[in-house]
Design a protein around this nucleic acid. Structure first.
Lengths: 166, 166
DNA sequence: TATGAAACTTAGAAGCA
DNA sequence: TGCTTCTAAGTTTCATA
């Protein structure tokens, strides 16, 4: 192993931004933009993948085009005895839960839920509420997105440049 | 224009799932999986892109590897006079806001914020609170993600199959 | 209208200077 | 790091059902 943790420089940032904008941009094209040969770009990308900085490449989809038209955030309140591990197991059983995390504040966890429609969401919510250690839930239905093209507005897509989280 | 909206079938679903799992899967490989030639797969992908069902291809990144280690959800309460449009403009000025939406419930909007550390987050929060029509904010810091590999845990990556929103 | 095979073109991978 | 070769994938055209 080398001593250097393969530092991330400005060139890498630009390459990353190009790949986030369009994962199919050719190394040649990226190289032309950042002033590097295609080979050099490839090597840097390989390193970023090795470093697990780039975790993969995916297609970005519009959930509404697939029929997922309802979205909500759900605060979950648990019995004090329930450990986060337990909640993680439960959450995995719901394909409608696209994100789940423990949070500060009154609630124990926050769930990001997608459903086809309000009826579907209600059904999911009722199932969640019957989970043994869940005491109560508070739902916030998403009305409209204020950030179009945002990763989460697109429902799991990435956009933006490497200098920014989105 | 044709009368048919180019219906989405099971084959498309499988192709989409393969591309979401890995956008660099070759058409040939996908074809072998779904029982189609590479040419046919490409044509279906082209159609899905035209239909804006597939909105693009991106690299998935681990925000923490880029130094974005703090994450929070912020409820925003506005003066009753403030229209959502106005909020949308404001939100665009903050690269730290990775998602923003109007929601049901007491708050007018919910922001998903990423920052490098708690100090950075506090600074962002203070800036947001000085925006003219914002009355108050309530923050929920994300402690840990319960769904690893989830799009949002990865901070803007997509994963899963087309039958599911994630 | 959708498909598959073949020809053609471009990009990616590997080795070398 | 960049250049060149080799290989593999994407792209286009054509014929077919």
């Amino acid at each position: 192993m080398t001593s250097k943790p393969a530092q991330f420089d400005e060139l890498d940032r630009k390459i990353l931004a190009a790949l986030i904008a369009n994962a199919r941009t050719s190394f040649n094209e990226i190289g032309a933009t950042v002033g590097l040969s295609a080979t050099a770009v490839k090597r840097r990308v390989d390193k970023m993948r090795e470093a697990d900085l780039i975790t993969g490449f995916t297609a970005t989809v519009r959930p509404s085009a697939l029929g997922w038209r309802t979205e909500a955030y759900v605060e979950v309140y648990c019995d004090s005895a329930a450990p986060p591990r337990r909640l993680a197991e439960v959450v995995r059983n719901y394909p409608e839960i696209v994100a789940a995390m423990t949070v500060t504040g009154g609630a124990d966890a926050l769930l990001h839920v997608r459903a086809t429609d309000v009826g579907h969401f209600e059904e999911v919510l009722e199932r969640i509420r019957t989970e043994p250690f869940i005491r109560k839930t508070i739902s916030y239905m998403v009305l409209s997105h204020l950030l179009t093209g945002s990763s989460e507005a697109a429902g799991g897509a990435a956009a933006g440049d490497a200098a920014n989280p989105r």
